[in-house]
Amino acid sequence: MRVTPWLIKIAILAAGIAIGAMTIVLTHSTSGIRADKPTVAVAPIASPSTGSSAELGSKLLQIVGRNLIADNRAMRHPDGPLLLFATPKPFGETLCRVDVYTVAPKIVRGQISEKERWDDDLKVETQYGLWKRPSLAGGDRDRACAAYRDFEHLIRDGSVLSVARAAFVMDEILAQAKTGKFGFQVTCTRFARDPNADPAPCDPVTVLRLLKLKDIYRAEQKSEVKGGRSYIRQDEILVAGSGLKAELKTNRYLFAVINVEDEQHVGRQSIDEADVRAVKIEISEVY
């Protein structure tokens, strides 16, 4: 990742012009916004669009751009989007919250196909980086997140609470995989890309030993049932460990969905902690 202030500002300003019409509602509420920093004069921006909403969109995104610190140009595909990353901030005890700005390819290099007319010009979403294992105590989360730069391993969330819990239970699952002895039921199934092929069993210990916490790509809570003094949840964790292809002897891209049944005990555990009850691993070939 490289710090590129000028490119960041240009890309954000271009996207701001494109989506300026979406910000017109803000013109009626800016008096209620408190500025924590002194107001900085913004030079007029040349734009094919005219009108207060387009100008406001550009100016707002120029201000936002001051908080952007890195981009993905070093590894970006020519036809892929430009990703811009804001300064990470602490979230909970083990995560850093990162605002990720996705600038559509057509903004960066011009529209090349009819379908791109309907792409979002600019998408903003929150993703999460893991700065320490949940089982490790202590640490300065403010300093750790201020220095966090591993933007290749951010976690997408189905629900914000499931991200922290996914990291917590995966930490425990991977720790037990090292010993080969689990305190819960574990199964592993491999699905071929051919829909007519039968699924095959796989060794969960081998698979889990190939994974790391930073391999978590997405986490989502699928269901929740309240008991007497506990909540039983089904969490789905998507991982894409680079070592799976070699170990399972295939040239195809693989990803693993780890379905975890876990239980949070009210009064003893926070909502982002849980005991693992069962793990079902499903490995699929993508292409």
Rank of each mutant, 00 (worst) to 15 (best):
E285F: 08
I271H: 15
I173E: 05
E93I: 00
T4W: 14
G158P: 05
Q111G: 01
K9V: 00
Q185N: 08
Q221Y: 02
I19M: 13
T102G: 00
F184A: 10
A35W: 01
E263Y: 10
T87N: 05
D215E: 06
L95H: 09
C202A: 11
A278I: 01
S159Y: 02
D215R: 07
E152I: 02
I10W: 13
E224M: 09
D157N: 13
L254Y: 05
R193H: 10
K59W: 00
D235P: 04
S159H: 09
I271M: 12
G20E: 02
D119A: 14
S135P: 00
L56M: 13
V257W: 09
D119W: 15
G241M: 12
P48H: 04
V260W: 09
D120C: 05
P81Y: 06
A11R: 03
G57C: 05
I283R: 08
T206C: 01
F91I: 00
R190P: 01
E273D: 06
D150C: 13
V42R: 07
L254G: 05
V257C: 03
D203Q: 12
S53M: 05
G51E: 03
L56D: 02
R133Y: 05
L56S: 04
R2H: 12
Q127W: 11
N251Y: 03
P204N: 03
S230I: 03
S52K: 08
N251A: 05
R149T: 09
E152C: 03
V186P: 06
Y287V: 07
I33M: 04
C145P: 14
A175Q: 08
A11D: 05
R229S: 11
G183N: 12
Q234S: 12
E220V: 02
P201L: 06
G138E: 06
K280P: 00
K59P: 00
P105C: 01
K214S: 15
P44D: 01
T94Y: 00
L60E: 01
R229C: 04
V266P: 11
L130S: 07
N196W: 06
E224D: 02
G92A: 03
T102K: 14
P38S: 06
A14N: 15
E55R: 15
